[in-house]
Amino acid sequence: MSGVTAHSNVAIEARALVKEFEKGRHTLWQRVRREPDRRTTFRAVDGIDLAVETGEIFGLLGPNGAGKTTTMRMISTLLEPTAGTIRVLGTDVAKEPRRVRAQLGAMLSGERSLYWKLTGRENLEYFAALYHVPPKDTKDRVERSLAAVKLSDRADDYVERYSTGMRQRLALARALLPDPPLILLDEPTVGLDPQASRDLRDRVRDLRAQGRTVLLTTHYMEEADQLCDRVAIIDHGKIVALDSPNALKRTIRAEEIVRLDIGIAGDGDGAAIVDRLSRAGTVARSERHNGTLSLTVHCASARELVPAAFDAAHAAGATVQHVEVVPVTLEDVFLSLTGRGLRE
């Protein structure tokens, strides 16, 4: 299932969501001198329709600057939409922002402030007071939050002694203090090593097992593929595809992906190679840089395409420098939809 639906089981519903920012300045001095206003408007989010169902892990996948964080900040009431509506657990974000905030826990980029000179437990006790957790419930909430992120055994260590991954987990514990049914995670594994990333993803799966709804943003295709029940691919402020990871990958009419780096001699542009490989598969990407032609080809069989690539390179006086055969990924879906990679 994809797209926005009128369903009682919807945790987050956004319709025609738009956010515009002004670029440039028009200072008081410029106004006094009656200089023209040269400010322009930049549309960071451009008409998003979105429905996140209760109990699922839903991912917003896209490159940096695509509009993911802006969307997350509007849902969490930190930014006011230019146009459109958002309902969180049935509550209108614009009309009742305080009620919305009481029902969600958020770990947003730039908002991971922890006090390094306090212990993990002291940090959570402090934030519990800020979040108006009833004093009689504070000890239990802190213990449960620490246990949820597997930090109970390090709760009384100073945060300055924590690894980066442990600090991320403590930030997640902080988001769990109000015992919210909805968790928002903005790029939760950025800057973590592979082991810490796997550990945090396990904690996110635990949240779903507890019946919570999780909305996360990421530009890591593997994270979205492994973790999310459904994914919305976002680019230039628009959702360009929305479905389960497997369903999105099935839109690529190929069994395998072949990535090639071919050294081109002299002033050749590799057009003959691209043309020949286009007969054996679908050339999804072709770039020439510093004498190297980089190709991504979707094909039914790499066993047939790779020899054809060597033959085509030899005929053009070129050399195959690197060959990689990989299964279809969400990166390939993004590439087919936008013409460029997620990390560009």
Rank of each mutant, 00 (worst) to 15 (best):
V4S: 15
V4G: 08
T5V: 15
A6Y: 13
A6D: 15
H7K: 12
E13D: 13
R15V: 12
R15T: 09
A16W: 01
K19C: 08
G24I: 05
G24C: 01
H26Y: 13
W29K: 13
R31P: 02
V32R: 01
R33C: 01
R34K: 09
R34N: 05
R34L: 06
E35H: 08
R38T: 05
D46N: 11
D46G: 03
G47H: 06
V52I: 14
E56M: 12
E56S: 15
I57W: 03
L61N: 10
G62K: 06
P63Y: 13
P63L: 09
N64F: 11
G65I: 09
M72Q: 14
M74F: 08
M74R: 06
T77P: 07
L78W: 05
L79N: 09
T82C: 10
T85P: 00
L89G: 00
G90T: 04
T91V: 14
D92S: 10
R98D: 12
V100Y: 01
A102V: 02
Q103A: 03
L108R: 00
S109I: 04
R112H: 03
R112A: 08
S113C: 05
L114Q: 07
Y115N: 01
T119C: 04
N123V: 02
Y126R: 11
A128P: 01
P134F: 08
P135E: 13
V149S: 01
A155D: 06
D156M: 04
Y158F: 15
Y158Q: 15
E160A: 13
E160P: 04
R161C: 11
Y162F: 12
T164A: 15
G165W: 03
G165Q: 09
R167I: 12
R169E: 09
L170T: 07
L172G: 04
A175N: 14
P180G: 10
P181Y: 02
P181G: 02
L184H: 04
L185S: 05
P188N: 08
G191I: 14
D193N: 14
P194W: 15
Q195F: 11
D202L: 08
D202Y: 07
R203N: 13
R205T: 08
R205M: 06
D206S: 14
L207M: 15
R212E: 01
L215N: 13
L216K: 08
T218M: 02
T218G: 12
D225S: 04
Q226A: 09
L227E: 02
R230G: 01
R230I: 05
I233T: 03
I233W: 00
D235P: 05
I239Y: 02
D243T: 03
S244D: 03
N246W: 11
R250P: 06
R253V: 14
V258A: 06
D261S: 14
I264D: 02
A265W: 03
A272P: 07
L277F: 05
S278L: 06
A280C: 10
G281L: 12
T282C: 10
A284H: 11
R285I: 05
E287D: 09
G291I: 11
V297R: 00
C299L: 02
A300F: 08
A302Y: 02
R303W: 08
V306H: 09
H314C: 07
A315V: 06
A318S: 15
V320C: 00
V320H: 01
Q321A: 12
Q321H: 07
H322L: 14
E324K: 07
P327C: 12
P327L: 10
V328T: 03
V333D: 01
F334I: 00
L335G: 04
E344P: 10
E344L: 09
